[in-house]
Design a protein around this nucleic acid. Structure first.
Lengths: 192, 192
DNA sequence: TTCGAAAAACTAACCGTTAGTTCTACGGTT
DNA sequence: AACCGTAGAACTAACGGTTAGTTTTTCGAA
């Protein structure tokens, strides 16, 4: 029962990273649609089946850090100080995520995503999954007296805030405005 | 330059309907995944390419009345009495749509949709498209003084209300609650 | 009746994805 | 140090949705 320090897992993670890096490079060089799964596998020197063992779909190669996103959101809810209000905690985390996406050299990647219907669709489903996980975290803490519907609604709103901010001309201003709306919506569900 | 009374277009529409009906029947008989595009085409006595000339994807065969949905939503905004408030008008239309989906013999169809990841994904994209169209309609009427971000946010919220209500145990109660939240959010954007 | 154009058909593939199988390399045990 | 058991990786071969390219049919207008 040794702790998972295995070399195997390091190799696996390295291979996964190599596949993702190769894929992203090829996609940006030649365009997402112009690069096939077989191209990526060949360039990364792995079998096609190996690629699909690490990633569930072609689109997942682009959204490699999917899991992080989800974790950060739920932790913003569960790890906040006791009795700290929900909405500002959510707002802080979503703001960080938006900054992460609009900053540094992420421009070309998002341009690629916006240009590909397949990638946009995939991102949509991803975000709905995130909304459901976030909803579960919120319900776990507020379910009584807040209703499940109210919690799920707020979760959806928070994800929508992220998306709309990312697309807006002035992301941070848009986020401020949207979260004012979310705050009002959350207040409206406060039990008498 | 005769008005479009053509027999051609009637035939075309009839063929389209026949394809959709055949597909839905086969899907419900044997299951969505168990029926291939080639099966549908054969049973409807058309070529595969003809099928794709009428429907952009396999999933579209199930969501045949997609366009209606979109039109009804936008009309709820544009065709309401002058100076009538926005949110109640939206609420009324969304309620009608929810009733249409949860009522009569629609059960098996929605069960099929909920069981198929492909269909769920397709419905998600559809709804986001609807949200964008609805957002455009709202912006066209409220853009000054309301911001574009606020309008887009409300459109997303309205679509989310539909989805959450459809999934809830008590759809109409869920809709009431969600729209109270939406009303509060909309009020929060009222300019000073 | 004839002509032009739109619709439908046929062929033949491309591409993402998966099942089935075999090979290989690592980790724990003796 | 030699030995298994297992998990990762590879190969093959296909399936199913989708599309490009081309030809044939069908209808409306002149």
């Amino acid at each position: 029962m040794t702790v998972p320090t295995g070399r195997r897992e390091r190799k696996k993670a390295a291979k996964r990273q190599k596949i993702a890096d190769t894929a992203l490079r090829l996609f940006l060089e030649r365009g997402y649609d112009a690069v096939g799964i077989r191209d990526v596998a060949a360039e990364a020197d792995v079998a096609v089946t190996t690629l699909f063992a690490h990633f569930p779909a072609k689109e997942a190669l682009v959204f490699e850090q999917d899991a992080d996103f989800e974790q950060r959101l739920t932790r913003a809810v569960t790890d906040r100080a006791p009795d700290a209000p929900l909405i500002p905690a959510l707002r802080r985390e979503v703001l960080a995520l938006v900054r992460h996406c609009t900053g540094d050299g992420a421009g070309p990647i998002w341009h690629m995503i916006d240009s590909s219907p397949a990638l946009r669709k995939y991102e949509e489903s991803m975000q709905l999954r995130h909304a459901e996980v976030l909803a579960a975290a919120i319900e776990a803490e507020f379910a009584p007296p807040r209703t499940a519907t109210a919690c799920r609604t707020i979760a959806r709103f928070a994800i929508a805030a992220y998306t709309l901010a990312r697309e807006a001309a002035e992301p941070e201003a848009a986020l401020d405005e949207t979260f004012q709306m979310i705050e009002a919506a959350w207040e409206a569900t406060r039990p008498a």
